[in-house]
Structure formats: C-alpha cells, structure tokens
Design a protein around this nucleic acid. Structure first.
Lengths: 123, 123
DNA sequence: CCGTATCCAGCGGGATACTG
DNA sequence: CAGTATCCCGCTGGATACGG
C-alpha cells in the first residue's frame, strides 16, 4: 500500500501556472509582500512598464485565485488597497528557492523592473 | 552599506520564466528527474496529450537554456536520450516547495498528465 | 485616482501529414 | 524512431482613449 500524502502532484501546479506564469504576477506578489498594502498606482510605478489594462488583468486574476485581497474605500478621490492573502504569502515563500536558483544561475536575460529596483531585496 | 549577496532578484527569474512557464516544461523536468534518461517517445507517452511538435519545441527550449542534455546515438533506428543537467536537477529541487504549496492549496483545476500518473510521486 | 473599452500584434501550442 | 513542415486558433499583453 502506497503512502501518497507526501507525494507532490504536478496537476496541482498546473492549476496555478496560468496565473503565476503571467508576465507580472510574481513581480507583483513579491513587491506586495514587502509592504502591508499597496495602491494601484504604486504597483504600476514599481513595475515600471506595465499598462493599466495589463495590471488590471493580472490583479483580477490574482484576486480570483485568492492570492491577493482588494479593499476599496468609498472616498473621493477613490482609494483602493491591495495586499497579499495568507495564501499569497505562502506562495511568496514557496517561490523563494526558485528565485534563489534563478539568481545563482544568473539567468539574467532581461529585466522588467525599473533599474533602481533591479537590485533591491525581494524577500 | 547594504549586503546584497543574499538578496533575490526578480529580473533573474524573469529570464527563466519564458522557459519554465511553458505548458509542459515543469512536467518534463520532473519526469526526467525520476530516471537517468528518457527517449523522445517515452516522454511523449508520460505527458499523455502532447503533440510531437510541442514536445520538440519545449525540449529544444530546455536544451538551449541548459536544463536538459540531448545525446543522439548514430544507430538505425535512431536513438536519442534526454537527461537533466546539474542545472536542471537544481531547478527540480527549487520548484519542490512550489509543487508542495500547489498541492496544499489544492489548485486542482485541470490535469495534463495521464490519469495513471496523476497521483504518482513527482519528487 | 482607478480603472474600463477597444483594437491589435505576437506567440504558444494543438492537429495533421510527412521524412531521414 | 525522432522528429519537421504547415496551418490555424486563442490567449497574452501592449497602446491608446475614455469613464465614474
């Protein structure tokens, strides 16, 4: 009789890949984890080159997957705060080794981050 | 003065994401890590639903990135063996926590693996 | 300020047939 | 056996303009 509780299932990963493989997803999760919360325009600035549509798309996706939380305050001008859920925080920890591996092997083909953030600590 | 040697850089991850975010990449890396080497048709069978073109595409990509090694033997019929490089083996370890996270949160939207492999140990 | 609406180009990836 | 050659479709994501 096999013990499956410790086994890792690729099909589970497949479920989240369409979300986290999106161009800005991991960047946003990582940035978001460095602060309590961030506003739409703040995230846009930190990403550097993302369009409002693309950011809205990925934020909605991350929200639907339960990785981030969106809180809108009824003010004028409007204010919206984004933050990681526990789920998202766990993911951020889980991709730590992957980030570390990427750095060790120096897979530095391109950078989507602003130059002044390129060497900032991510985790 | 900041110590940056332990910092993790997202731009490094950006370099490898176009490769490992491909539909079958992680599946192949994981399967490949479970054996010394595999042949083209073996990988095709394990993936289950991949077309020869898609498999050739991703194998070439993984090879160009230095994650897998391709050895062709001059025989008839032709024989080609694929295996992980050290680089690829390190990556396989690095995505362990991510796979574990995915399983814990049961992101089970779909499975690209054959049913009989769906619950096999990946690592 | 925080997005939405619209349009559009690029590419990932499946189906199928064929070759050295 | 191990791919290549085509064709094609859908999704991602950028640009731009506009709305609550």
């Amino acid at each position: 009789m096999e013990e499956e509780s410790d086994h890792l299932c690729l099909c589970c990963l497949r479920g989240i890949m369409p979300t986290i493989s999106k161009k800005w997803a991991i960047c946003i999760i990582s940035e978001l984890g460095r602060r309590p919360s961030m506003r739409f325009s703040e995230i846009m600035k930190d990403c550097g080159e993302i369009s409002p549509k693309s950011l809205a798309d990925v934020l909605k996706d991350l929200q639907d997957t339960g990785l981030i939380q969106r809180i809108a305050y009824s003010e004028v001008p409007p204010r919206v705060e984004y933050s990681l859920t526990d789920h998202g925080r766990d993911l951020r920890v889980a991709i730590g080794p992957l980030l570390k591996w990427a750095k060790q092997h120096n897979q530095l083909y391109m950078s989507y981050r602003k130059p002044e953030l390129a060497h900032a600590p991510d985790i």
